[in-house]
């Protein structure tokens, strides 16, 4: 039997699509009440993993328990205990928000007496109570996402899965969605498991797993992950990048790479390094930026590339990765 303190327990989980191994034997534990982030570029295996945890895909090897139930053998029990918010909308636009929620409540067998109160609670939480009678097709993208979150919570799940909850939304809506998630953590006794490919969003999580090409390459708190990098990131805008990289190696003994179109180098004290850079590099510099370690740097230090570049190049075989990321 699994540890009751764990909301999610994954051991050696594998999923293949034909010859492609989309998820290559991952292990992870998520404690009850934790907000756990799954971070990685598109096609890294995030959605495939979440689909297996939600019983939508059957694992090819390994095991996973969600809310104490095995995802392969006790599918219905898992489904009763989880809430899901998908990347793509799954609402019925021809029904009102209220009808969408009623449909869900009945499908999940929420006791009739509890439905009105629960419905009001979740709709007020996402600020849609006043609009409950409107057809969902009249909603904006952000409102739809909020309604999906409300619906995912309606049956008071023990684990809420959010697959890219803010993808495709404008920055303002994104931050308001995060507001709801923070609020949710305070109000309900719930474990949140989310995926994102936005580095800044991962900072909202208690712990983060960084996944790349189907494997977990780092798993810790955001702070610990950033501390593990420890260095500032200095980015140079130059016309002659190869010359700048060569000069950095020659004069400072630093290994620079090109990331997001700029020569990038990690140094312990970035600001103090800048004056030396201008004085000694010997290659014309058009601009310099210094950044404190972020999760971007964590990703970079583990994979040698930034998450954006990983998505742009798509890794070893972009088509295969794309397919692997599909559910």
């Amino acid at each position: 039997m699994s540890d009751p303190g764990l909301a999610v327990e994954v051991r050696g989980l594998v999923k293949r699509f034909g010859d492609v191994e989309a998820v290559r034997g991952i292990d992870l534990d998520v404690a009850a009440g934790e907000t756990f982030g799954f971070l990685g570029p598109n096609g890294a295996g995030k959605s495939t993993t979440i689909s297996m945890l939600c019983t939508l895909l059957t694992p090819d090897a390994g095991s996973a328990q969600v809310a104490g139930h095995d995802v392969a053998r006790e599918r219905d029990a898992v489904r009763r205990n989880i809430g899901l918010v998908f990347q793509d909308p799954t609402l019925d636009g021809y029904l009102t928000a209220e009808q969408n929620l009623r449909f869900h409540a009945e499908l999940y067998g929420v006791p009739k007496a509890l439905v009105p109160e629960r419905m009001r609670l979740v709709l007020e939480m996402v600020g849609l109570w006043e609009r409950r009678g409107s057809l969902v097709q009249t909603y904006s993208g952000g409102m739809k996402r909020r309604l999906e979150i409300a619906r995912g919570l309606l049956h008071a799940p023990r684990v809420l899965f959010l697959d890219e909850p803010t993808v495709g939304l404008d920055p303002q809506t994104r931050s308001s969605i995060w507001g709801y998630i923070e609020e949710l953590k305070r109000r309900e006794d719930i474990t949140i498991f989310l995926t994102t490919h936005y580095m800044d969003e991962a900072e909202h999580c208690d712990r983060i797993a960084i996944i790349d090409q189907g494997e977990i390459i780092a798993l810790d708190t955001p702070e610990a992950l950033k501390a593990s990098v420890g260095k500032d990131r200095v980015q140079l805008q130059v016309d002659d990048a190869p010359a700048a990289i060569a000069a950095l190696r020659e004069r400072f003994g630093l290994d620079a790479t090109i990331a997001e179109g700029h020569v990038t180098v990690a140094v312990a004290a970035g600001e103090a390094f800048v004056p030396r850079l201008f004085a000694e590099l010997g290659v014309p510099i058009k601009g310099v930026s210094v950044a404190r370690p972020s999760l971007d740097d964590v990703f970079m230090s583990y994979t040698g590339t930034t998450i954006r570049d990983a998505e742009a190049s798509g890794g070893p075989d972009p088509l295969m990765r794309m397919m692997a990321g599909r559910r």
Binding site: F86, P89, G93, L107
Partner: peptide, 12 residues
């Protein structure tokens, strides 16, 4: 429109 998935993941 994705609604099918809402039905497919339900515990029925």
């Amino acid at each position: 429109y994705g609604f099918l998935r809402e039905m497919l993941v339900a515990p029925v």
